[in-house]
Amino acid sequence: MLRATVNKILTYSVVDGPGNRMVIFLQGCNFACAACHNPYTIGVCDDCGDCLPVCEPKALTLQSGKITFDATLCTDCDNCLGICPISASPMVQQMNVDDILEIARKHHPFLTGITVSGGEATLQLKFITALFTAIKADPDLSNLTCFIDTNGHLGPKGWSQILPVTDGVMMDVKALDPTLHRTLTGQGNAKLLRAARIVFDAGKLYELRFMAAPDVNDTEKEITALADFALSLSPQIRIRINAFQLHGVKGKARDWNAMDKARVDQITTRLNAFGLQNIVTPAMYL
């Protein structure tokens, strides 16, 4: 049976698309972003066992060569995440489509829709296609909208598979300059820019997300390039500016500065001046 590796499920989220959404964080990512706020979702556990000694309540055990996780024993100390050499999490669950539908049913009156996020949700494309298809086919759940939060690193064939059952896509743009993008994420950006156009043409690009970090990707050159690209889609395209914060960040981005409101407002003014009309800025700064 088709199963997904799930890092976490939230049944209350107001920041992952329109309305209140159930969010399924899928494990594993094909980017390795310096600024990742949940780096423990990047890798996929290879059962090396390095985490076993640091798990005091013995929620993690090795059974027939596989790491097994007992959530009822876990004390949320996160020591296993700290020691993992490959930015993975041993505290994941294997879930099938029915498992997720059951949770959605329980919370249905509170939900506007579901969002798959990650990690990178499209790495488990077969699963999310099956999940969205099942939601659309279920008379009790078919009013829920199905959204994907993605880094966009998926080719046209993949999009043609998932878009027919998708209602909206939120896509990250880390940088417009390909070299900078590669520095920030480990991958080029040609695939994601192409993906943004495919999704936009299908009428399903809900928003572009620009994670702005001071002196990293907020230069005039970057902002101009972002504006040019966005305008080539539509002046009405919704652009959410996320302000880089240090919370949860590991690795080299620890040395970056947090983005403040004054600078976000400047960027917004600049994008408005280019003719972009739908800029969303953070409701709060930590």
Partner: peptide
């Protein structure tokens, strides 16, 4: 929390 300000539909 005030993140809902960007999303009153929630």
């Amino acid at each position: 929390d005030e993140t809902i300000k960007n999303n009153p539909a929630a």
